[in-house]
Every structure is written in C-alpha cells, then in structure tokens.
Design a protein around this nucleic acid. Structure first.
Lengths: 234, 234
DNA sequence: GGATGACTACGGTGCTCGCCGAAGTGTCCC
DNA sequence: GGGACACTTCGGCGAGCACCGTAGTCATCC
C-alpha cells in the first residue's frame, strides 16, 4: 500500500542534479519533451562524449529514461515526480543573473504560462485549476481533487474520456506553482487537458522552450468551456 | 506581486545538498530543530573542522541559518521551502539499504507520524488534514485551503488564535506526503497546531529523530476535537 | 586574568570527476 | 556492402574538494 519508507539517499540524486551541465540538461527536458543526446550536448555547451557520460549518470540515478528510435536515443525525464522535485529546487535556488533582454522577456512569459513536464503551469495553469474547481468539474475538498459526476460530462464534451486513464498514473495531481500555495493541475488529467488544448490550437508553443501562449480562440474557449476569466492575466 | 521568475541556479543548491555528509546534516535538521556544529559533526561522522566547512557552504547556499547563543551556534533549516524541497528529493531518491532492524522500525514509525520541519507529517498528518476539511474547519475548494468562520471558533477552543498569524508566513500550506497525492498540513497553522499538540501532550517526541507518537490522550482528543478517526492508523 | 570549551580558518594530501579527443559500436541510407 | 551518422567507451589530464590536524578567535566560567 504505502511505499516502504526507509531513509532515502538524497545525496545521490542531489549530486546527480548538482552539476551545471546536468542541470541544463534537466531544465531542457523540464517541459516533458524528449531530446536526443546531440541536442542536449548543444544545450549544455559540452562535447558529445561529455554529455554521454552525464546522461549515463542521470539515467543511473533514475532521473532520465531513454527511448531508442533507430540510431538516435531520446532522453526524457523519468517521471513527473522528477519534474516536481526540480521545480521545488528551483524555488529555493538563487536566481541566475539575467544576461539579456530576451532572458527577462522569457522569464515573464514563463511566469504567465509554461509547460511543467507534460502539463500546464504558470499563472494560466493556476487560473485553469481554480476555474475547474469553481465550475464544479473538480471537487477540491478532502485534501485532494476528485472529478465530479458533472465534471465527467464537461470533460467528455471537451474531448477527454477520464474513464480511460491508466491505473498506473494518478488521475489528478497538482504542482505547487510560484507564488505561495497555489496549485496547477497535473497528473493524467492535467496532461490530457494540455494535450487537448494543443490539438484545438487553443495553446501554442512559444519560441523559447517551455513557454506557451494562449491563442485568442483559446481565451474565449477556456472561458466558455470551463469558466476561466477572460482577464486571467490582468 | 509575483517573484521575478528568472531562471534559477538549480545546480548550485543541488550540489550543496549532494554530498553525503551535508545530506546527513540536512536530514538531521529536517524536523525543524536547531543543532550546534558539534552535534552535526557527530551526526555526519566527520571531524569538527570538516563539518565547519560544510556548514559554511550550506549557509552560503541559503539552506541553513545560524543563531548565535553564547559560545555555540545553532544551525537550522533556512525555511520551510527548504524542508519541502528535501522531502521532494527524498521521494525520487533510491532507498538506502536498511542496515538494521532498528532502521526498519524507525522507517515504519516515520511513515506513521513524523515532523517535517515544524509541522506534523506522515499518515497522522494526512489524517488530521483530512479531518479538518471534513469537519469544516478548513475549506479545501478553490485550489488551496482557507480557514472557515466556523473553523476559527474550533481552533480558538483548541487554543490557537489564527488571527494572530504573522503576515510573513502563509497561514496554510501543505506538503505532499508519501503515497501519491495526499496532503498534510503545513504553514503557520500547521506549526501552531503541532506546537499545541505537544503542549497538551497529545503528541510526544519519539526516541529517534523526527519520529513522534500519538498518546492515548491525543488519540481521543483529536477524535473529539477535530473528528480524526480513532482508527486512523488501522 | 587565565583556563576551558565551541567553533572557524589554514595548510596539506589524496581522490573524485568533469572535460576532451580518439577509437569502437550500432543504425540507416545509397 | 560501404559510408555517413548518432552515440558510447576509453585514456589521460587538470581542477575541485572532502578530509584531517593544527592553530587562531570568541565567549564563558572560575
């Protein structure tokens, strides 16, 4: 039932994360995407042989998984838990010096709406979860979230069959977002909603990694479907 | 309003955590207590000079704070955010080999009820928060928790003036506990409740660090006051 | 004021590990 | 099958750092 909660080796994981090159790799994968070794090498600014060693170590620490696809290997975060831990670390880490104007533009965009692993985060993610609860799609009482019977219908109309979720992954999880104590939607439902938002082109990927933009169709669509305020970003 | 969310230096913090000796220090302080350098040296199994260097580094990384008290210096986790990040890392870390029987006894006790920084965690913490929501003390809808008007009264009778909470610390936070997607109560309220539980001797510190035990008085008291089931640990 | 205790600062030693280039392995394309 | 491509493994170099013992700095106690 409960995982056997012996002490765990924090030092090992932390050491695995605690190298500039490896941290860059993890951040590049924080949107839940998969990238081949070459791209990650470029991202981290090191040689292919070096990145290969780093990737082996991250894999050893169970932070990454590999998917073989022909002659290339796509690396991906091992789980949403990893993404969570990374965001939590980012909270307590000191800010990197802002190097350029585009950095601060990107920072602002990330704050508004970004991908955290495979689901929506940032202010938009928070606003969406709040709207789902206010609109009765989710029941937020009881120390967690549950899909209500009414909510099943709303989600079905939106194109999501919540009954189809795999047993392995919790249907609903939440990530703690920037700005004390606000949630955004994660878990299988968070991922499904986000995927559907892209399908409908209510959401579009920004040029910078992890950044997403709400389209005009998305703004009105989210308002009509889930009651997200039109001025959520005011 | 929102913190300026530029990229943060995950690698620096993670590297600070990612050393066996430093990780032991952090784990020893994870219950929110404060310990002098000598005790931490013993805990980590290194010399005083070595621990001094480690403590300086942890302080530099803003993970620890020091309080001077005469000729000794007490070290403490810098914030609840740090405790959170550590628990999150513990989630994804591989379990350390169980070395002895007492280890596994302790692991079991930790799972049942433990301190996470300054508030209650483990199955008991989860059960308490659930009871507070079910009993209407907290309102769990809306993507967070709020104290209800009725709840203010219940808490007052219990000996907690929730109006007195400082503005600096959020009244209510939650930590994600072991076992997918359950919360336990944190924040100023979590700390106040826990403090009061010790005052009333409903809760007693166990022999092992972080472990706490519910007394018989506590079991019935929590049931009558907040509606925690008598068989929460069944 | 001098002795004791708690810690920090310094100097030195050895090991780990991040880095690269070169060579090896597996995959795809022509 | 041969060659290009994507990556991993190997060997070697250099820097960083975890560790200790010793010496220095405060604060307390007598």
């Amino acid at each position: 039932m409960w995982k056997t909660a012996t002490e765990t080796d924090i030092a090992e994981v932390a050491a695995a994360i605690g190298d500039p090159s490896r941290a860059k790799v993890l951040r590049a994968l924080a949107d839940g995407g998969a990238l081949p070794a070459g791209a990650l090498a470029a991202e981290a600014g090191v040689s292919l042989s070096t990145i290969s060693g780093h990737l082996a170590r991250l894999r050893e620490a169970k932070l990454l998984t590999v998917e073989h696809d022909g002659r290339r290997r796509y690396y991906r975060l091992a789980s949403t838990d990893v993404a969570r831990a990374l965001e939590e670390l980012a909270r307590i880490a000191r800010p990197l010096p802002v190097r350029s104007l585009s950095d601060s533009v990107r920072a602002h965009a990330l704050m508004r709406a970004r991908l955290c692993y495979d689901h929506l985060a940032g202010q938009l993610g928070v606003a969406l979860l709040a709207a789902l609860v206010d609109g009765g799609v989710l029941d937020g009482s009881g120390g967690g979230y549950r899909i209500t019977p009414a909510g099943l219908g709303v989600l079905g109309d939106f194109g999501i069959d919540a009954g189809e979720f795999s047993r392995r992954r919790p249907a609903i999880r939440y990530c703690v977002d920037w700005g004390e104590g606000r949630h955004h939607l994660a878990g299988a439902l968070g991922a499904a909603v986000t995927r559907r938002l892209f399908e409908l082109e209510w959401l579009r990927k920004g040029r910078a990694r992890r950044v997403v933009h709400l389209t005009d169709a998305g703004r009105t669509g989210l308002h009509r479907t889930f009651g997200v305020p039109l001025d959520w970003d005011a």
